[in-house]
């Protein structure tokens, strides 16, 4: 009698757990399919590979442990009043299951350390330098280029400056296949410069000189957004980033330079 009374809630619980596990597995597979964008920079591709490696390890550990859990729940449910063997532990087993996680995390760390060294580039003197200034609540992008698109001294005043507004999200334009150095500045609070398809963000911190270099490999328009809560309209600090061929980029620089020149400003 007690056993049949126990069984029904038990079966229901088991059904529930297995349905949830199945749903989670489906989700996990789906996320492997479309979870993270592959990224459009050299650096992003390295980081994405590391992500996939971590994901595979995670799914394997998840499936093994959840399977063991479900197996234990099904197999070792109470069948009679006999007290099970009172095992208090096993030093060997403890050592094994301490050792295995140690190996897993050391391998993950080693790989992530290598990727970290690869993606944190030294400054490249050939890079196009763009000053990115975060302010409450938009971005200013300033390019150090002459009218033909060639690099100028980054310490000289910028030749093209775009200031975004919430209604008019700025479009940051960069040439493909070239190193671009972003120099991040803020004069008010902390922001974070985040381009989803770079798979990268770096905080824009007042009083701190943060910069990074990437090389984009795919033309197209991508989204960017402030990723550090910066106050009232944090959600509206969106921008776009357009990766284009060098020719198109030069054309754009020329037209902007003409528009910005004193002659053009005369009404």
């Amino acid at each position: 009698m007690p056993t049949t009374r126990m069984r029904r809630p038990l079966r229901r619980a088991l059904f529930l757990v297995s349905v949830a596990a199945l749903a989670l597995l489906t989700f996990a597979t789906a996320s492997a399919q479309s979870g993270q964008p592959k990224g459009i920079t050299d650096e992003a591709r390295d980081m994405h590979t590391l992500y996939v490696f971590t994901l595979v390890m995670a799914v394997v550990v998840f499936v093994l442990v959840e399977a063991a859990l479900v197996y234990a729940i099904v197999k070792f449910r109470k069948k009679n009043d006999v007290l099970p063997a009172q095992t208090h532990g096993s030093t060997i087993i403890e050592m094994i299951w301490t050792g295995i996680p140690v190996l897993i995390v050391i391998s993950l760390f080693t790989y992530s350390f290598i990727v970290l060294r690869n993606v944190e580039n030294d400054p490249n003197p050939a890079a196009v330098v763009i000053d990115v200034t975060g302010f409450q609540y938009q971005w200013e992008f300033a390019y150090h280029l002459d009218a033909k698109g060639a690099n100028l001294d980054p310490d000289s005043p910028p030749t093209i400056t775009q200031i975004g507004t919430a209604a008019d999200e700025p479009i940051l334009r960069i040439p493909v296949d070239e190193p671009i150095e972003f120099r991040l500045k803020s004069n008010d609070v902390i922001h974070s410069f985040y381009v989803r398809d770079f798979l990268y963000k770096l905080d824009v911190i007042p009083g701190r000189d943060n910069r990074f270099t990437v090389t984009a490999r795919e033309e197209g328009t991508y989204i960017g957004q402030c990723a550090e809560l910066c106050g009232l309209n944090h959600a509206l600090m969106r921008f776009q980033i357009e990766v284009m061929s060098r020719e198109k980029f030069n054309e754009w620089v020329a037209s902007e330079s003409a528009a910005a020149s004193p002659a053009a400003r005369v009404p």
């Binding site: 980081m47 590391l50 992500y51 993950l108 993606v119 990268y200 963000k201």
Partner: peptide
């Protein structure tokens, strides 16, 4: 998030 380069994203 412990894998620093993954955490960047």
């Amino acid at each position: 998030s412990a894998a620093v380069p993954v955490d960047f994203a």
